[in-house]
């Protein structure tokens, strides 16, 4: 008997599940090495968004990602993967390094959104995201985006500008959380399931809208899923690295220009 088709809200729940693979799990399962580097050289080292150089299947790259964490301790340290402006500024600093040394970038997107806090506003959350978009749109090295869990609005978008955008089968990507949208347009946060349906947040929906380039299937085990992600990263980075960088940047502009 065929399984009942999952609703958009079922997928939202899967994307947010506590036992889903998070950045550190991926690094442990697919990277031969991950060397984290810290700090934005301005204010602090944000823990919601982390980055470092890695070797994945023998391919050297810069890994950036939201650090949602898998234990309560990690969740709290990283604000559940909600980055502060310092996180986005750290990401830009590390991307500059990648550009300087011709290393491709892979981003792992998994956040409810940018952190809504007093200090985040004081240190320019809006400016940090805006600058990230402008900056990564023109970065002279390949960028591969993998949306692994929750692609929550501007906080996700800040590290989701790339040459290829892949999405896991049960990941979501949205302009606003279904609950937030329901609260505003339905005037009832409990109508999130309807909002999720209307917003079209699942990988097949976004593929049909031409916003992503491919869907990575999830396996029966964590290892199988991680292996699929690894295979996709290695193949995509090899391909992107063969494209002259001027063409790459021009095509990246054209890609978002058409959206």
């Amino acid at each position: 008997m065929a399984a009942k088709a999952k609703s958009a809200m079922d997928i939202v729940k899967l994307a947010r599940a506590a036992d889903r693979l998070h950045l550190r799990d991926y690094m442990a399962l697919i990277a031969d090495d991950f060397t984290e580097l810290h700090g934005d050289r301005l204010v602090k080292d944000d823990r919601g968004l982390i980055g470092g150089f890695a070797s994945i299947g023998g391919v050297k790259c810069l890994v950036l990602g939201h650090n949602k964490g898998s234990t309560l301790e990690e969740n709290l340290e990283s604000n559940f993967g909600m980055a502060n402006p310092d996180g986005y500024r750290k990401a830009m600093r590390l991307m500059s390094l990648a550009e300087k040394f011709h290393v491709p970038v892979v981003t792992f997107v998994d956040t409810p959104g940018a952190y809504p806090g007093r200090e985040a506003e004081e240190r320019g959350q809006a400016e940090a995201i805006a600058k990230s978009l402008e900056f990564s749109a023109a970065l002279k090295t390949p960028i591969l985006v993998v949306i692994t869990g929750e692609g929550g609005s501007g906080g996700a978008l800040a590290i989701a500008v790339g040459d290829r955008i892949l999405m896991l089968e049960n990941a979501i990507y949205s302009v606003i959380s279904p609950e937030g949208c329901a609260g505003i347009l339905w005037r009832d946060g409990a109508k999130a399931a309807e909002a999720a349906e209307a917003l079209k947040v699942t990988a097949p929906d976004l593929d049909a809208l031409g916003v992503i380039d491919g869907i990575v299937p999830e396996g029966k085990t964590r290892e199988e899923t991680a292996a699929n992600v690894k295979k996709a990263i290695v193949a995509t980075l090899k391909h992107l690295s063969s494209i002259p960088v001027a063409d790459l940047v021009a095509r990246r502009y054209a890609k978002f220009r058409a959206m």
């Binding site: 978009l133 023109a138 978008l157 990507y173 949205s174 347009l185 917003l199 947040v201 978002f256 959206m259």
Partner: peptide, 26 residues
């Protein structure tokens, strides 16, 4: 902010506009 009734593509306008402004500055 973004117009949520146009879903993910309204979010993409943030990239499109910022990229065009980046070119202007360059």
């Amino acid at each position: 902010g973004a117009r949520m009734q146009e879903g993910i593509r309204s979010l993409m306008q943030m990239v499109k506009t910022s990229a065009a402004i980046g070119r202007l500055k360059e």
